[in-house]
Amino acid sequence: MEPAKPMKGEIRSFLSQKEGNEGKLSDTDHTGNSSEQGTSNRVMVNIDHVNFYYGEKQVLIDVCMEIPEGMITAYIGPSGCGKSTLLRCLNRMNDLVDGARLEGKVEIAGEDIYDTRLEVSDLRKRVGLVFQKSNPFPKSIYENIAYGPRIHGVNRKDELDAIVEKSLKSAALWDEVKDRLPESALGMSGGQQQRLCIARAIAVEPEVLLMDEPCSALDPVATAKIEDLMVGLKEHYTIVLVTHNMQQAARVSDHTGFLLLGKLVEFEPTKALFTNPRQQETEDYITGRFG
């Protein structure tokens, strides 16, 4: 709990430095793989001194972080360090766990998402989540995509058709499945299923897309497809990605946060973190010297 203070300060300084420089977040000088952007990079998600507990067990310790809009932010860290937990705090999926408790504040687009007056379902519509293990519904491909729009009140066939087509196209799945939309989604390959889940998530047009190790069960070809997809999607969505694959983080993300034992050790533009880590633990981890 002691090292939490300086770490937080550090990140603050990194962000304030950005703010100081240009008045808003911009990472053009840090990330090579991110195209030259004139888009505004205001803070989309603001995680403010978050402590998280599963019952008695504290899993996140005083995490502070500002996630910029329209970019891909990756979390890396050893297994069990709390990456998924942190991700799930952003759409309150942890509410489903009995005895889960959060201290601190999480704001999305300036709104406190832990306000009791907020409808969780509204929040989750705005903050989508793609799970580590693909979980298509036992329905047709079409119905999987149409499910989200339907529950949010879209019922017109032509509208739904348009959404399904658009979502599948965004998820680079359209060409593969356009002829078998009425077939069960369970007959698809693992990679297709995962892309279907991404398409399903973007069909409700969230502002933020959370992805928890979306490629962990996929082969390199499918992984590459999904990585391309993420890069393509970040134009419209703020993406937060959890990954175990450091190459992946390096390839696709703009910013990377390194978590260790529930603490955010370092949060930097990706290139900086991988080429010039400030913390010894980060360096140990990314060079593989860390268990």
Binding site: M93, L96, S121, R124, F131, N135, G148, R200, A201
Partner: peptide, 15 residues
């Protein structure tokens, strides 16, 4: 019914 399935629905903003 797998929790993952209902979680998938809840994550889409379903009640």
């Amino acid at each position: 019914v797998p929790k993952l399935l209902s979680a998938g629905s809840l994550a889409l903003g379903a009640t």
